[in-house]
């Protein structure tokens, strides 16, 4: 029982965290959103603050909100938050605490012929998330201003599929007033969401790998975060089991702290010699294989 639970521990954590941080049931019942003081606190994952259940704020939405404010050119609060979370966890957040990551994980469980670990053009597409971060999250909100000197949240407006799925669609379904305002922008965002969701069935977490600006930020911390992976070179037999287990086909035996790794732990479980292990907070922690070997 404990071993079976351990196999699904990540899914359980993802579900519990999503329910906990989106637990404002009245929002779903009344078609509104939570308006309390907790909303000034960011959650670590990509979680739209306009989701009816959201109890916290999305760091990427918040970053654009502050940068778009008149007279602001930098957000100490959000950058500090991202550095603090990143220094401890890196992209562990993506693998364990992101609601949209959970959605992609669940979709990828759907059987589909000839699944791919990477999309065609991966060599170039994997850098797209940095472009999205630089242009849509930082540069455009800072430089394209309206008549009162405020910038728009370009990433949220034109890209964010998490906002469309968890906020846009539920709110539009529950509010007739919003339904009358639908136009090309909503159609564009729903279309993009559908494409990403369909790709998620075929390929592993395409949004996280190619488009997510939050993952791009957290990935930069992977090599130094307190929570990181290490390889015992004396034990590693270079069998390739870790790469075969990795949803992104990374090489954890060569580069255990790749900026693309979301810390799902599949490579550690697959390692036949326990050469891969997690480096915990302050001390090394060996991980037992689930089969007890």
């Amino acid at each position: 029982m404990v071993k079976r639970l351990g196999k699904h521990i990540r899914l359980i954590v993802q579900l519990c965290w999503t329910a906990l941080t989106n637990g404002y049931a009245m929002g779903f019942l009344k078609g509104g959103i939570y308006k309390g003081e907790l909303k000034k606190i960011c959650v670590p994952g990509l979680n739209c603050y306009s989701c009816p259940g959201a109890l916290g704020a999305c760091p990427i939405g918040s970053l654009q909100a502050v940068l778009g404010e008149q007279g602001k050119w930098f957000s100490f609060y959000i950058v500090g938050f991202l550095m603090l979370v990143g220094a401890f966890f890196g992209r562990f957040i993506c693998g364990w605490l992101c609601p949209f990551g959970l959605v992609q994980d669940l979709l990828h469980k759907i059987p589909f012929p000839k699944k791919r670990k990477r999309l065609p053009g991966d060599r170039y597409l994997k850098y797209l998330r940095y472009l999205v971060l630089a242009v849509l999250v930082v540069i455009l909100p800072l430089t394209v201003l309206d008549i009162v000197g405020q910038g728009s949240p370009w990433y949220c407006k034109y890209i964010c599929p998490s906002g469309t799925l968890f906020a846009g669609i539920p709110l539009v379904l529950m509010n007739e007033g919003l339904q009358s305002s639908l136009g090309w922008l909503f159609n564009w965002k729903v279309g993009l969401l559908v494409v990403i969701l369909l790709l998620s069935v075929w390929s592993y977490r395409p949004f996280c790998r190619y488009l997510c600006p939050l993952g791009a930020i957290y990935g930069l911390f992977n090599p130094i975060a307190f929570y990181r992976y290490e390889v015992d070179k004396d034990k590693c037999v270079s069998c390739g089991a870790c790469t075969r287990a990795c949803g992104f086909a990374l090489r954890p035996d060569v580069e255990p702290n790749s900026t693309e790794c979301i810390r799902c732990g599949d490579c550690i479980r697959a390692c036949p010699t326990q050469a891969l292990h997690r480096r915990g907070f302050g001390k090394e922690r060996k991980v037992e294989r689930e089969d007890g070997a």
């Binding site: 509104g32 959103i33 939570y34 308006k35 309390g36 003081e37 909303k39 000034k40 606190i41 960011c42 739209c48 603050y49 306009s50 959201a54 704020a57 939405g61 918040s62 909100a65 502050v66 404010e69 602001k72 957000s75 100490f76 609060y77 959000i78 950058v79 500090g80 728009s152 949240p153 949220c156 407006k157 964010c160 906002g163 469309t164 906020a167 846009g168 709110l171 539009v172 919003l178 305002s181 639908l182 136009g183 922008l185 909503f186 564009w188 965002k189 729903v190």
Partner: peptide, 26 residues
């Protein structure tokens, strides 16, 4: 420092209102 400069209030002000851009209406 960001808290001291009132940035959390900016986040709160944005987050307690439905973000029309975020949901594809803005």
């Amino acid at each position: 420092l960001g808290l001291h400069m009132g940035e959390a209030e900016i986040v709160l002000r944005k987050a307690v209102n439905i973000c029309l851009e975020c949901i594809g209406l803005g």
